[in-house]
Simulated scan of single mutants.
Amino acid sequence: MRLEILNHGYRPATKLLFAIIRLFSGHPVPDAAKLTFYRPDFYGARAKEFTDEAMRGPSEWSVGDRELMAAYVSSVNESAFCIGAHTATASLAYQDGPRVTAVLTDLESAPVDEPLRATLRMLGKLTQNGNVDADDMRQVLAAGASPQQIADALAVCTAFNTTSRLADAFGFEQLTPKGYEAGAKYLLKRGYR
């Protein structure tokens, strides 16, 4: 159910910012951004800080890898908005859309390194079942992922399990392919703050 608050519940300065963004980008502000501006003291500021650290903070995973994790978690959650946004961003980060599509279509045959494949498999299980166990972690470690990479991947998983569920709960509007591409360029240039 789409809440009307996403269309009208903002202060005048925020409305002006949205108008400027639309003017210069040629695209409306995505609902994910709108949500962070609505009551930023309650959700938005903390969400942006956590997500930016997970997605752009120091990590052994590349930005493309983390965007692919976001797309994969969103795919497991069947969140159309987040799949579109992070498929576009991962594709642009990697400069390899077919690779991203391959992962989202069939992880087991996709052309990715084993540490990433095992990590995505674990994130998928965590997203779908709500838990993982020591054996799951041993498999990821045996595939070559470091403990820090696992911790970083779990942060991405947390951010996008939250975001994809909010996207569906609030009925985020789908963007056009050009809108997703514009959003991807913004995220790669400026991050999530």
Rank of each mutant, 00 (worst) to 15 (best):
A32L: 09
F170I: 02
R165W: 09
A143I: 03
D52Y: 06
L123E: 04
N129Y: 15
R193V: 07
D135W: 03
A151D: 07
H8Y: 00
N161K: 13
R121C: 10
G171T: 08
E108N: 10
V29E: 03
L3M: 01
S59N: 02
L188D: 05
F160M: 10
S164I: 11
T51P: 06
A143Y: 03
K189N: 08
A151S: 13
D106M: 07
G144P: 03
P147S: 08
V63T: 13
G97S: 11
P40A: 12
G57N: 05
L92I: 08
N161S: 14
I150Q: 07
Y94V: 06
N7T: 10
A155S: 12
E49M: 12
L126D: 06
R190E: 11
E173A: 15
M122V: 10
P12A: 07
F170S: 09
Y180P: 05
I20W: 11
K185D: 00
G84T: 09
P28R: 15
R117A: 12
K178Y: 10
S91V: 11
H86T: 09
L3S: 12
Q95Y: 00
W61I: 00
L17D: 04
F170Y: 14
A151R: 13
G44D: 03
L175T: 09
T51Q: 05
P12D: 10
A90K: 03
E108C: 06
L188A: 09
G26Y: 11
M137I: 15
A134C: 02
A145H: 04
D113L: 11
S25C: 01
V100F: 08
A167G: 15
A47Y: 12
R193D: 08
D41G: 13
P58D: 09
Y192I: 07
E49P: 07
G26T: 00
V103P: 05
V112W: 04
F50D: 05
D96K: 09
Y72S: 04
E173F: 02
Y10F: 06
G26S: 11
Y186T: 10
S75R: 08
A33C: 14
D113F: 12
Y72P: 03
Y43V: 13
F42T: 02
T119K: 09
G144R: 03
E67H: 14
M137K: 13
M137H: 07
G179Q: 05
K15C: 00
L17W: 14
T89C: 05
L23I: 02
V103W: 10
S91H: 12
G9H: 04
A169E: 01
N131T: 15
L126F: 13
R190N: 15
D31Q: 02
L104P: 09
D133T: 05
K125Q: 11
G57I: 03
A93N: 06
A90Q: 02
V100R: 03
K185R: 10
A184R: 03
K15A: 10
D113A: 13
M55V: 01
E181T: 12
G9D: 11
T101W: 14
K189H: 09
T36L: 01
K125E: 13
D41I: 00
T36E: 00
E114S: 06
D106T: 05
Q128D: 15
D96Q: 05
Q148F: 05
L116E: 01
L3T: 12
T176W: 09
H86R: 01
R138C: 06
